[in-house]
C-alpha cells in the first residue's frame, strides 16, 4: 500500500517561525535575520549600524553562536538588550530557539530585532526564524563566486551587504560579477557595498532598514 504524504520536512520549524512572526508583529517588533559566513563581519556591521540607528530605533539583538558569548558581549556594549543562544555546535538557529529567547527580551520597549545567525551559507537559508527581513553579509575576502555557489542563501535574501570594501584593492573580487549573479537569482535584491571598518556605506544600510521598518509598521 502506498501512503501519499507530500509534507515539507521542515514544517515543524516553519510553523513555529510563523508563530514567532505573529508574536513579533503583535509587539510591533520588526525582525531581521542576519546571515553570512563566519568572519564576514555580521557582528561588526551591527556595531557600526548602532552608531547610525541609536536615536532612530529601539533595537534588541539575539546572538546565535556555537558556544561562546563573545559576540553577545560586544553587542551589549552598544546598550542594546542582547540574548545569547548557544547552539552547542548546531550549524544554524531554529525557530524554537528564537521563541524561547524572545521571552527574555523586552519586546514591548523594542521595535527592531536583529538575529545574528550562526555563520553558515547553507542550512541557515532553509530555516525560517520568524523574520520579516533577511540580510546576507558577504565579505570581499570570500570571493565573488559565493553567490552562485550558494544560491538558496542569496535567492531568499532581501539584501546583500558586500562588506570589507576597504579590502577590495587587495583581492580579485569582481563586484560587477557578484551583482550580476545576485540579480539573476533574485531580481529584487538590494545590494550595498560597505566597510564596517571605515564606515563606508553604513548610513545607506541604516536608512534602508529604517525605511523598511516604517513601511511595514504603517501597513500593519
Amino acid at each position: 500500500m502506498e501512503v501519499v504524504v507530500t509534507q515539507d520536512i521542515l514544517k515543524a520549524n516553519d510553523s513555529i517561525a510563523e508563530q514567532n512572526l505573529a508574536a513579533f508583529d503583535e509587539a510591533g517588533v520588526y525582525t531581521v535575520n542576519v546571515l553570512g559566513s563566519p568572519g564576514s563581519g555580521k557582528t561588526t556591521l551591527l556595531e557600526k549600524l548602532a552608531e547610525k540607528l541609536n536615536n532612530r530605533v529601539k533595537a534588541a539583538v539575539i546572538e546565535g553562536d556555537l558556544a561562546t558569548s563573545k559576540d553577545a558581549e560586544r553587542i551589549e556594549k552598544l546598550g542594546w538588550p542582547t540574548i545569547q543562544i548557544n547552539t552547542g555546535g548546531g550549524c544554524h538557529l531554529e525557530a524554537n530557539m528564537v521563541s524561547s529567547a524572545m521571552k527574555n527580551l523586552p519586546l514591548d520597549t523594542s521595535n527592531l530585532l536583529f538575529i545574528e545567525n550562526v555563520g553558515n551559507l547553507v542550512c541557515t537559508a532553509s530555516h525560517k526564524l520568524g523574520e520579516r527581513l533577511r540580510i546576507v553579509v558577504l565579505s570581499a575576502t570570500e570571493g565573488d563566486d559565493k553567490v552562485s555557489k550558494y544560491p538558496p542563501m542569496f535567492q531568499k535574501t532581501n539584501a546583500l551587504i558586500m562588506n570589507k570594501a576597504d579590502l577590495l584593492p587587495y583581492t580579485d573580487f569582481d563586484v560587477d560579477r557578484m551583482e550580476e549573479d545576485a540579480r539573476r537569482l533574485n531580481p529584487d535584491v538590494e545590494i550595498f557595498k560597505v566597510s564596517a571598518r571605515t564606515g563606508e556605506g553604513i548610513a545607506e544600510v541604516a536608512d534602508w532598514l529604517v525605511a523598511k521598518r516604517e513601511t511595514w509598521f504603517a501597513s500593519r
Partner: peptide, 11 residues
Amino acid sequence: SELQLASLEVE
C-alpha cells in the same frame, strides 16, 4: 528547493 516526504510504501 523541495525538501519533502513524498510517500511511503507499506507492506
